[in-house]
Design a protein around this nucleic acid. Structure first.
Lengths: 93, 93
DNA sequence: TAAATCAGTTTATTTTATAAACCAAATAAA
DNA sequence: TTTATTTGGTTTATAAAATAAACTGATTTA
């Protein structure tokens, strides 16, 4: 049984990573809606993923409004794949 | 994206449940070795799974030594299956 | 019989997850 | 115009969780 990367073994962070695995990029508002999380929680978890180098954040504008865009890094992708591999040692499928 | 049952979304509890899904029963010592956990941590997590009705614990003897045996309940099995179903909304296995 | 080991439990500590409170800019309402 | 209100977040406080350390009470072993 392999260790489950604690950075990914968290509902909200896993959700964010899962979404980012499937798209080029996603902004804060989209992630918030999709994950049904509070802004505070999402902000904290995005920070942790950024610190780990799993995602990249770009702060820009959409018209006059601020817009925080996230995308997964190659390190993040690898970590995600590894997490799935580890998971499979727990749930045989 | 479905909620990940927090009682199962924990490395050690998931490991215990995973093991118990595959066998009739398993004792404390076996679970401790297989999961590579400390006795204290395992004891606490077994307690939580018991409180939730996911596993049943039987305290007996193996010769003169105490022996704590665990087995999964049908409620536990259902919860585990549901957890997997929910997981699949995050990762495509 | 004293020391070590076994099979755990209880308690304390650290770490996390989460929400509440906050802030600055933009828009809407009076 | 100036006062709310909403938007898009961040920071901080708190509740909950994971984990290890310390403990207990039997059983071996030396």
């Amino acid at each position: 049984m392999k260790e489950l990367n604690p950075l990914l073994h968290s509902q909200l962070r896993l959700a964010v990573m899962s979404i980012l695995m499937g798209v080029e990029e996603a902004d804060f508002v989209y992630l918030k809606e999709k994950t049904e999380s509070t802004a505070g929680n999402l902000s904290v978890q995005i920070d942790k993923l950024t610190q780990a180098g799993y995602i990249e954040v770009e702060r820009g504008f959409s018209g006059k409004r601020t817009r925080t865009t996230c995308r997964i890094t190659s390190t993040g992708k690898e970590a995600f794949e590894e997490y799935i591999t580890a998971l499979k040692t727990y749930i045989k499928l």
